[in-house]
Structures are given as C-alpha cells and as structure tokens.
Amino acid sequence: MAPPAKKPLTKIVSHLLVVEPEKIYAMPDPTMPDGDIKALTTLCDLADRELVVIIGWAKHIPGFSTLSLADQMSLLQSAWMEILVLSIVFRSLPCEDEIVYAEDYVVDEEQARVSGLLDLHVAILPLVRRYKKLRMEKEEFLSNRLMKCSLLCPSPDSMHIENIEAVQRLQDSLHEALQDFEGQHPEDPRRAGKLLMTLPLLRQTATKAVQHFYSIKMQGKVPMHKLFLEMLEAK
C-alpha cells in the first residue's frame, strides 16, 4: 500500500513562511564604556526594535487584523515578552551555553556575569536546553513560527477580550495549523503536544524577564524607548 499523502500545509503556515521578518542587529554603542549599563541599554534598544517588528509580523497572521484594535492590543500586550524570549531561544539553539540576543550580540556565562546579564542568562538557558532536547533545530523554520502564533493567542478567557468568539476562531485556525505541522512528522506524532508542553516554562521565563526589566526601569539608570516602556507597563 502506498503511504498516505502528506496533508498540505495550511494557508497560515505557508503564509508565515513568506512574512518572517528580517534579522535585526544589536549594534552596541561603541562610545559607551563596557559594563552593565551598556549591556542593558543595548538589550532595551534591541527589544524596542524587535517589538516594532513583532507588531508588524502579527498583522500578517491571517485573521489577526480582523480582530478589534483593542483585542489586538490585549493579545500583543500579553504575549510580547514570550515571543521575544522564544526568538532568542531559537537563535541560541546552535550554541553551547551561549545566549544569542542578536547575531552580533552573543553572550556566554562569563560575559553575562561581567555585564549584569547573569539573571537573564540563567533564566533563559533551561529553555534553550529543553528545546535542544526536543531536537528542534531541524524544524526551526516552521515550529518557531507556529509557536509564536500560538503565543499570540492564549486562552481568551484568561484576559480582557472584547470579542471572545473572534479570538477563539483565530485560536482554532492556529491549532489546525499546528496539527498540520504534526502531520508533517509521522515519525513523531505527538510533536505538537510536546511543543505546547514547553509553554509553561516559556511563560515562566518571560515573566522573570519582565520582572527583571521592570526593576531596571524603576532604578531609572538605563534609557528605554517609549514602546518598550509602554509594553512593560502593560504587564
């Protein structure tokens, strides 16, 4: 008997393959003295620019732009740090105990220690190890995109949403896409489930990162751009 034909990827997945944003770079200010203020300034600036990219990317997810503006805002305010952390984690997969904040900003434990990033480093590393165990590298291209979509659409009853049904429909279509993705891996039929099981650790890591940056904001020593501040305050 012929093996069953692979189910074609949903429109969502095939569309996401096209709209993945271009890489952005950290570009640390060469005139600043090395140290924690420089490192955190670099990261806050990077996060601000990545946020702009994430917002633009979210608008390309089929169905997202048809939600009310208030619901789009609620979903992004809820998921932005998880999406940022997930992007960092996927970039770090090929490395050994290094965190790739950007292609030009790769930090190992010693560098993290001297630049005040050790808390973040220690928080993110277990997530990198977890995805490495899942041998995520091979599927990085698709799974990263689908995961980011799933993050954008958590359970609508857990937050303030105007039109729960519309968000639910978006969530359903994303779950269908995840199932399609699973269909691409007949050797590992529980792959989508394993991916979803990583979400609690991702949430926990993102919460730590938000707390970290919020306390930095309260200290007032590191300049932060308005969008990043806005999103931190929304948390």
């Binding site: 917002i55 997810i61 503006l69 805002m73 305010q77 308005k226 969008l227 806005e230 929304a234």
Partner: peptide
C-alpha cells in the same frame, strides 16, 4: 488607549492586512 499610544499607532498604521 491613550496610555498605549505607540502600540495603538503601530497597529493602526496598517500595511494592507492579509486576507487569505
């Protein structure tokens, strides 16, 4: 919305939303 002005603006300055 006033409090989240930039997010609001970025979402409103829509490049044509994708309709699949």
């Amino acid at each position: 919305k006033e409090k989240h002005k930039i997010l609001h603006q970025l979402l409103q300055n829509s490049t044509s939303p994708v309709d699949l």
